[in-house]
């Protein structure tokens, strides 16, 4: 407690760059600018209730949901294999898995452009077999692909770290009590890994639901997710008030889903990435 002053620099940083902007966003969302200056109102939130915006919200949530599900389906078995005791080349596999994460997020996503383009890598290969070029870019599929590709490690790592902590003697105890491999997994390994699953789900779902880069690059200029909607309010429409309101709504949605998650994840474990 004596060394509390060591935390002051970060404390100041936090106030200037997190707390103050948050208050500003909240302020903007609750006001509109008129000739007489700012006026408090809830109009910005009412605007959001129009079907066109709700549709954007729905699309964001469902795409993020689908991506999270795919990440879980792909990620859980991967984590299971990584955590298994027989894996001797574990560190190398782990290295391969983490390697893309060292590259810039934007670059990684751009790379998919050249692969999926009309004259891109995949369509070129298909043309050798006499198959007409397929429209791979600028649709839901491409956006989901981008999300899964970018966020998969965030699903694997927390599950892996929880699985690795499971004491092997618990598995032996289950076998001893008559459980074959399938029952051991269903009744012991999977329930014990749930904290990792929950934290994996939130670590994939949160960035997926708010992304605007993936949807911009792989979904195309007209593609609209909630992230793009917010970005546009600030960069091209210049309606900071509406943009702030959507941001607040987004934050509330995230807070609620975090709350639901932490209710299941009462052991508060498995968050640590490294």
């Amino acid at each position: 407690m004596k060394r509390r002053f060591l935390a002051y620099p970060y404390f100041i940083w936090m106030i200037i760059f997190i707390v103050v902007p948050l208050i500003l966003v909240l302020f903007y969302s609750l006001t509109i600018s008129t000739e007489n200056g700012f006026v408090f109102t809830l109009d910005n939130f009412k605007t959001f209730l129009q079907p066109i915006y709700l549709k954007v919200l729905w699309r964001s949530l469902s795409l993020a949901g689908i991506s999270t599900l795919i990440c879980l389906i792909l990620g859980y078995p991967t984590a299971l294999i990584l955590a298994s005791r027989q894996m001797s080349k574990k560190s190398f596999l782990m290295f391969l898995f983490v390697l893309p994460m060292w590259m810039n997020f934007l670059l990684r996503t751009y790379a998919w452009l050249t692969l999926l383009e009309k004259n891109g890598f995949i369509n070129t290969i298909l043309s050798f077999f006499g198959i007409e070029p397929i429209q791979l870019l600028y649709n839901d599929g491409a956006v989901i692909l981008g999300m899964v590709y970018n966020f998969l490690p965030f699903m694997v790592l927390p599950i892996y770290s929880v699985l690795k902590k499971i004491n092997h003697s618990v598995i032996e105890a289950a076998e001893d009590l008559g459980a074959n491999q399938y029952i051991v997994f269903r009744k012991v390994i999977f329930p014990l890994s749930l904290p990792g699953v929950f934290s994996g789900i939130s670590m994939v779902f949160m960035p997926a639901v708010t992304t605007f880069v993936i949807s911009r690059l792989l979904g195309g200029g007209q593609y609209m997710l909630i992230g793009n909607l917010i970005e546009r309010q600030f960069t091209s429409v210049y309606d900071w008030h509406f943009g702030s309101a959507v941001s607040i709504i987004m934050m509330i949605i995230i807070l609620i889903s975090m709350g639901v998650m932490s209710k299941y994840d009462n052991q508060q474990e498995g968050g640590g990435l490294w």
């Binding site: 032996e172 289950a174 076998e175 001893d176 009590l177 008559g178 459980a179 014990l192």
Partner: peptide, 30 residues
């Protein structure tokens, strides 16, 4: 024969109880 087919049961050094189950569910596992 794998462990689950043997008519023996083991008490492990570090107990190895199932922490996601309560006492009754632990005992009822087998």
């Amino acid at each position: 024969l794998p462990p689950y087919k043997r008519r023996v049961n083991t008490v492990f050094q570090k107990y190895a109880l199932f922490s996601h189950l309560n006492v009754e569910e632990n005992i009822a596992f087998g």
